[in-house]
Design a protein around this nucleic acid. Structure first.
Ligand SMILES: [Mn+2]
Ligand SMILES: [Mn+2]
Ligand SMILES: [Zn+2]
Ligand SMILES: [Zn+2]
Lengths: 124, 124
DNA sequence: TTTTTAATGCGACATTGTTGCAATAATATA
DNA sequence: TATATTATTGCAACAATGTCGCATTAAAAA
């Protein structure tokens, strides 16, 4: 099943590249020039995640955020970094530093979801 | 506004103490002996959080989990620990080790929400 | 016991995200 | 270029999660 490039996919990907932050569906929809259906946005984003060009974070607000992968190659995905969500301006950014976690014996990590909320530098 | 002890509050608190894990609304409701309304469960849990006897974690499944506070005093709350959610059995447990995170200049932490999902020791 | 009011049950509601299905359009093929 | 194939879309319906208003109930105080 090969992917097709559509107006929606291109626009959404460009948006995620341009804005240097993780965005939820609402943010994306309001920033899009053309009207793209809600279900389509979710489907596009989930496809991006499957393809490994975008990673998903679930915020402590319960919403899904999507961010363009920066330091990921086709094969190696390192998303063991925290994200900071500003409760004032809503911005969600990837924090640079890789978090190192050691799990107890016999535990296998599948997904790392580190999120810190608070006030960002702009809003202090 | 003083708190009142009701059957609901007592049962829910005992349940959270007994089960040594974080539970979401569904888990709690199915384990309760008496029928407690859904809205009531949420209200009780949120009150517990306000009172600092329970802490809330948002899972990467988007659900709210609640855990009885163990190493917290009335005044000091340290919830900078990760939680592990097993995708097989659903268990959500607090990991012992405190995670130390350093935020960039000007960033103020309000809430730490560290969650790792994967397979737990029992399910490997 | 009576009074006060915190807590509950119920229903309605908002929000978030997913899915089935017919229509559309991107790509492959002729 | 014209046609065929099928991935993608829009729409509606749906499920799940969590919150809120309001009348009723019951815990604690008087
Ligand atoms: Mn990230
Ligand atoms: Mn915990
Ligand atoms: Zn901010
Ligand atoms: Zn398990």
């Amino acid at each position: 099943m090969k992917r097709r490039q559509t107006h929606s996919t291109q626009e959404i990907l460009e948006l995620l590249k341009a804005e240097n932050q993780a965005m939820n569906h609402e943010m994306i929809q309001s920033k899009l020039d053309s009207q793209v259906n809600r279900a389509t946005i979710y489907r596009v984003l989930n496809r991006f995640c499957e393809d490994g060009i975008v990673h998903k974070i679930v915020g402590d607000d319960g919403k899904q955020y999507f961010a363009f992968c920066l330091n990921c190659t086709q094969k190696t995905h390192n998303h063991n970094h925290f994200h900071f969500r500003c409760t004032q301006c809503g911005k969600v950014e990837c924090l640079e530093k890789e978090a190192s976690i050691s799990l107890p014996e016999g535990y296998v990590l599948e997904n790392f979801n580190g999120l810190i909320s608070g006030t960002c530098n702009d809003c202090t």
